[in-house]
Simulated scan of single mutants.
Amino acid sequence: MLISLERVTHAFTGGHELFQPITASFARGEMVAVTGRSGAGKSTLLAILAGSLRPSSGEIRWSEECRVCWIAQRPRGVPGRSALDHVALPVLATGARRLEAERRAAELLDRVGLSGASSQPFETLSGGQAQRLMLAQGLAAAPDILLVDEPTAQLDQRTAAEVDAVLGLLAAAELLVMVATHSAATRASCSRELTLEHHVPSE
């Protein structure tokens, strides 16, 4: 197993725990739907898994040193910059030369089905294209774990299905993909589901 959670939960200062403690393990090759009502703590759990937030209780164990990429709900980019540039930039940040960075970026765009849009400015991309661009940009960091927050929330049914299919392919390539979602279709495309249960404070 790549990650093991032992009774992990979180409470912000002065508040109750968001969700009941979680004990579970996750492996490479899995696509996990993180579900629960609005406010259940799905994004909070992703933040904990990303290492940007310490759980208020419980323990997380890693079987190896992992690189984690967290993709936020709303795609963000520079309007006039091309899709290729958005993906090449994090590769350049590793010290790669420009030609090598662009070659790697082109490979990643092809991997998420965006090879035909590599020269398009960010502002001209459709919602589904922009979401897939964020996935390609995240992959440029060569993560072991991909955390994705509501990737299909703003998309129509057909475009959402395309994004779900890409996520499934990424998981099959030996990444651990964890998707916070309200979508029944996204849940159905995942290999398992982790439902955050509302924590009922004790009297």
Rank of each mutant, 00 (worst) to 15 (best):
M1S: 11
L2C: 06
I3R: 00
S4E: 11
L5F: 08
E6A: 14
E6N: 15
V8N: 13
T9L: 10
F12W: 15
G14P: 09
G14D: 05
G14I: 07
E17N: 13
F19Y: 11
F19P: 13
P21S: 15
R28E: 15
V32D: 14
A33D: 08
R37D: 14
G39D: 08
T44V: 15
L45D: 06
L46S: 02
A47L: 02
L49P: 13
L49F: 13
A50E: 07
S52F: 04
S57E: 12
S57Q: 15
S57H: 12
G58Q: 03
E59R: 14
I60M: 14
W62M: 10
E65K: 08
R67C: 04
R67L: 04
V68Y: 08
V68L: 07
C69R: 11
W70L: 15
W70I: 10
I71K: 01
A72M: 03
A72R: 01
Q73L: 06
G77D: 05
R81V: 10
R81C: 05
A83R: 01
L84D: 02
D85Q: 09
D85F: 07
H86A: 04
V87S: 13
V91T: 14
V91I: 15
G95D: 08
G95R: 05
A96H: 14
A96I: 12
R97C: 10
R98W: 11
A105H: 11
E107S: 12
E107M: 11
L109C: 13
D110V: 06
R111C: 10
R111P: 07
G113D: 10
S115Q: 10
S115P: 00
P121D: 03
G128Q: 05
G128V: 03
Q129G: 08
Q129F: 03
Q131H: 03
Q131C: 01
L133K: 01
L135D: 01
A136T: 15
L139C: 04
L139F: 03
D144S: 06
L146Y: 02
L146A: 01
L147R: 00
D149S: 00
E150M: 01
P151Q: 13
A153C: 01
Q154I: 00
L155W: 02
R158Q: 13
A161M: 04
A161C: 03
V163E: 08
D164F: 07
V166E: 10
L167C: 05
L167N: 08
L169Q: 14
L169N: 12
L170G: 05
L170Q: 09
A172Y: 01
A172M: 05
A172L: 06
A173V: 07
A173L: 09
L175V: 10
V177E: 02
V179P: 10
A180W: 08
A180Y: 07
T181N: 09
H182E: 01
H182I: 00
A185G: 01
A185H: 04
A188P: 00
S189L: 02
C190E: 06
S191L: 02
S191C: 04
E193C: 11
L194D: 12
T195A: 11
L196N: 07
E203Q: 12
